[in-house]
Design a protein around this nucleic acid. Structure first.
Lengths: 182, 182
DNA sequence: CTGAATTTTCAGTAGCGACAGAAAAATGCA
DNA sequence: TGCATTTTTCTGTCGCTACTGAAAATTCAG
């Protein structure tokens, strides 16, 4: 706590606890601690914050904040808020949990699922030339896996084509669940 | 490739490519490269393999395989196959992509979602005592987030209560998608 | 019970990513 | 256009995790 306290934002205990917890979760979701903490801070704090304030509040280097903010922008989770009359840039995060969730889903699909699916199809093509029994079984499995991924993508496509409000309502109301039971 | 080649299993090019790719994906899903590679190998290979063979095939230390296999057993992704008359233990992975996917879902829920949900409820309780406008907004958001997680858990519960075959059929047939459109 | 085969644990190492701090670049007001 | 403010890039360090190889423990045949 040797930082410039004058910039710090006054976190309540619950906010601090939340930010710390989120920071621990981050690594398991493919972003590092600082990135996750910054997102947590911007998500929980109503007003937009500038980079220096974030750095002071979280007790990390200014440069670290700069890099982390870029990553969050690449993820589509943080956007610049225009600073009326302010010199410093301000940043905010979308506050709607569903939007955040769906955005992470979109991004992970783009970054991981799609490339893997493409690679998988390549492997299947490669396996066409391989005639051993082992190779035949492997090819079959790789094909099944790619089909699974395609199905998941199709579900995602349909769901994300809907107006968000409708999607949320459908899931909340348990209407979705009924389909499984019929 | 200075290992004992005599134990190695003969991977086709497509298998090798698949294992390498999976190894790269692993870290983004919360397991390290070796763990992911071993799972890929056991998944793609029809017969059960012993630890030494795995080590030789992947070119990693025997002890590394031992630890990784334990982790995979903890994830419920690999199980010992009884070695009829063999001294060495053999291991296999479930070959069904859907089963693997659902198992990962189950496990991640148990390890990450549930504890976070519990923590979140604690934070909300903590926030009850905090009366500033900022704290009120934060509490509201944390509550919304916990509700989102509860809904996702409910969907997961319903889906996993079904016989697997039925679930797969529902998803494949696109029946699921229709609910969104109505 | 003894000793070989096998697995697990342990301690040390190496490599990689996160991070801080300094230097460079960019921005925008006078 | 010059200068102060702010942001980004760059370089080096630190810490952590994955990994190896060796030692310890376990298992099992004879």
């Amino acid at each position: 706590m040797s930082d410039d306290d004058s910039l710090k934002v006054a976190l309540t205990p619950s906010m601090e606890a939340y930010i710390l917890h989120w920071g621990e979760m981050g690594p398991q979701w493919g972003v590092n601690r600082t990135v996750a903490q910054i997102h947590a801070l911007l998500w929980i704090w109503s007003e937009a914050l500038d980079a220096d304030t974030i750095a002071a509040t979280l007790g990390v280097a200014r440069s670290n904040v700069s890099n982390s903010l870029r990553e969050l922008r690449d993820w589509g989770l943080v956007k610049p808020a225009n600073a009326l009359g302010r010199r410093k840039e301000l940043f905010t995060a979308d506050k709607d949990p569903w939007e955040v969730f769906l955005q992470v889903l979109r991004e992970r699909r783009k970054r991981e699922i799609e490339p893997t699916l493409k690679a998988l199809r390549g492997f299947v093509a490669m396996a066409e030339k391989e005639k051993s029994p082992e190779a035949v079984g492997a090819k079959k499995r790789m094909l099944e896996l790619s089909e699974l991924m395609e199905q998941l993508c199709a579900i995602h496509d349909t769901a994300s084509a809907l107006p968000p409000a409708l999607l949320r309502k459908a899931l909340k109301g348990g209407k979705l669940l009924s389909i499984f039971k019929s």
